[in-house]
Write a protein that binds this DNA or RNA. Sequence first.
DNA 1: TAGATTGTTAATCGATTAACAATC
DNA 2: TAGATTGTTAATCGATTAACAATC
Lengths: 229, 229
Amino acid sequence: MNKRKISENTIRRLPRYLHHLSELAASGKKCISSLELSQILGISPPQIRYDLGHFGEFGRKGYGYYIPTIRKEISRILGMRYGYKAILLGCGNIGRALLCNFDFSNYGFSLLCGFDTNPEIVGTVLNGVEIKSMDDLESYLAENHVDIAVLCVPRTAARAVADILAENGVEGIWNLTDTYIAVPQGSVIVENVHLSDGLLWLGYNIKEKAYEDEKRKLRLARQRTEVSE
Amino acid sequence: MNKRKISENTIRRLPRYLHHLSELAASGKKCISSLELSQILGISPPQIRYDLGHFGEFGRKGYGYYIPTIRKEISRILGMRYGYKAILLGCGNIGRALLCNFDFSNYGFSLLCGFDTNPEIVGTVLNGVEIKSMDDLESYLAENHVDIAVLCVPRTAARAVADILAENGVEGIWNLTDTYIAVPQGSVIVENVHLSDGLLWLGYNIKEKAYEDEKRKLRLARQRTEVSE
DNA sequence: TAGATTGTTAATCGATTAACAATC
DNA sequence: TAGATTGTTAATCGATTAACAATC
């Protein structure tokens, strides 16, 4: 372990390592080499060793990595033991889907409450989480420390709500609206999910694959003609 | 424009370009330089020019890019004009959220129907989309060409459903379940969204920022002591 | 001990950017 | 024309990987 710079890509890979290691642990596996892990992840063995090497020496030469140790270490690196406090803004379809299905505690977060503007759901409890009025957001933030806001409001409200969050000490915004949010450098940290980007990426790759398949077919047809001549 | 290799990063940036250009178009802007666009996107001007340069010469020297042209070009590159056919698997909370809120047609996709196992919702219509029985999935795929499957089933069913999709000619899987799916090289293309990865990334960055802030505070305190001595 | 596998450096590879000719 | 900005090459920067000493 040394002070070499940790790349953004390394950080982005850590949650993936954790996910697969948890699956392996659930299946009863205790130990794994970087080679075996690389086959599951599609990431090269030196890449895995280098990534982990930024944070310490977690493996054992000649054996590999002990899964419980490495899971604990990655959780620690990701800050999962801090019990970050989260609130959820906007309990429409997406917000409700997260409220009801997403297991925040499994990732070391605790979801304090939700906020919405609709008077019909304000005051109700969804999956054990109370829905408060959006009007009370600022006063709530003044009285409670919130680390992360899960932003699920309509796109038209996204910027305004993000500003309130940033001005009131929220550390991070998990932006699940269908727009991007930009904040000044050094202010709140934003993860812009923007789901549709992944769908468009798929569309591009399907187009390219069809094109490549077509090219290969033509090449094969040409070869066959040449042989028969 | 030439045959230089197009990087994965370039493709991943295209949907973002498109999103911001659409917002600019909606605000009535007609023309933009790579410099101005870079300030909106946080991507360097040469990066933008280089990215676009892979696909053609869309700008005008001395002026910049005409927004309608560049939007059309990026849509074309992403394959948005092919009207890809999509189906949605699993109409639980997340699936329903996408059915009701996600504007597939806005991204050039058409959502044909949904599938679920719950007999109470099979046969119903949600936001104009018919929900069919999961039992009929294979026969549906045999009779209809489907480009993309939006996978929202429970994680326990994810792999089994993905296999059926891959074996029956679906080109791409937009995997919104909370697990990763691996398929053989050259088979169906998978986009593993795995939402929680982004949340963990936020957690890491909050931890690091707190640590950096702490270090800076200590440094300042030390400097002040030295000055007063 | 022999075999296996880590941790880490140096070499390589690929992505970004600086710079500038072309030209609107 | 002068000023602005693209498109593209060459230079730089950073990320990945090959290789191997260390060692379980």
